[in-house]
Design a protein around this nucleic acid. Sequence first.
RNA 1: GCUCCCAUCGUCUAGCGGUCUAGGACACCGCCCUCUCAAGGCGGGAACACGAGUUCGAACCUCGUUGGGAGCGCCA
Length: 466
Amino acid sequence: MTVRTRFAPSPTGFLHIGGARTALYCWLEARRRGGEFLLRIEDTDRERSTDEAVQAILDAMAWLDLSADEAPVYQTQRLARYREVAERLLAEGKAYYAYESKEEIDAMREAAMARGEKPRYNGFYRDRNEPYREDPNRVIRFRNPLEGSVVFEDKVKGRVEWANAELDDLVIFRSDGWPTYNFAVVVDDIDMGITEVIRGDDHVNNTPRQINIYHALGAPVPEFAHLPMILDKEGKKLSKRTNSVSVMEYREEGYLPHAILNYLVRLGWSHGDQEIFSREEMVRLFDVADVNKAASRFDTEKLNWLNQHYLKTDDPAVLAPEFAWHLARAGIDATHGPQPADVIVALRDRVHTLNEMAERAKIWYGPIEAWDDKAVAKHLKNDSAAAVLEAAKGLLVAVEWKPEPIHGVIEQVAAKLELGMGKIAQPLRVAITGTQVSPSIDHTIYLCGRDEALKRFDHALVLARG
RNA sequence: GCUCCCAUCGUCUAGCGGUCUAGGACACCGCCCUCUCAAGGCGGGAACACGAGUUCGAACCUCGUUGGGAGCGCCA
């Protein structure tokens, strides 16, 4: 049988970083085993689901390049099917109508808690065989087995056993006429031919209930793999207050999609000592069965390292479009000025993210915004600065405009004036950038462009002599 | 409260009864390189939560303790 996995987010917000990892693992598992990866939008909560959220999730998936093999399935479009299945369960006596009000249910729960028990439905309508009737409180409940236990072999957690006595008769159809999560999921997973249910840890508790529904429906039970949670740096649940949780926020912060994927694949899974995984390697080596049981913390420092790793090793031409996106966001008009790919080469050893890179690139796309007074005082207003600037200007006018020849010019100036590189590079750097920190001086000058560089030297000469 | 789950350096992890004076990576510290900042190279500190038991032998198996987490909805 073909392996089929699915990622099933509910569109109540953006694609969460934890959701992204779940999607990645589902995608990888399907790919490795030559199967299919599907997407299902769980939008039955009409109060909280929005079209914007659906689009945001789709966009994030596309940006991460985790494409589904079939068009997404929307639960809201499958209502008739859920009804049909629920009717069948009703007809077979595997489900029944119940008419308690929400207040009654709440009271039931509180009473159980008071008795030190789990808050559960007491099964009042279980054996009453109440017929269908118009009632605002009408729900359909699943007749869960009373005895025995549900056992399943979770691919990451191992054997899980659950006493049916712990489970109550869950609502499968709400009074508003929509199916509940636990029911819709099972119907969908059966209809979609899902063979591997890979999802977050928070669903383990639902699994026994769902397995009972599979049994009631006479459908084969898929394999389950419950992924541990991703916690924040403090070991707390990831929250918007303290972390970026949306994948697209990470994009805005300048992270590369494959850096995020590489970070995520190693969070809870490993392959010996390997840290860097290409897509092909992930597909070949990943196996959900090797995923760790314990929750892990999200460490931005390591993500930073990975992001810079890819910044340094990827082809600048391939990185250029994503970088251009950041330049535009930073309000930079890149139609004039240096090629983004050249800027990447100059800055990639110095930053961890693309937006940091865009910020530093400003110096070559527009005028110097702020002069560092200390830099000017130290490197421009001294005995040799003016001479250095003059000499450099003289040679730069005619040199071939590439980093290497420019580097040659600087060496010539040093030789001619009998000065060390420090005495040459720093005044030039301040002249071009207004600060004493920048990439190597040849690149710094090169990226500025000949005309602009000469203009900045002239201005610096004024400062040096003033 | 009840049910279930988890536990190796600060963090991500390797380890699947002897090869562990516990390996790698991020972060941190030091040195080197150096036109600044980085990057890079070399080196360093840093962990088996605790207690019993099983065994000739335990990070690995069992039980308990402690500490964390999840769930207990007409939310997903």
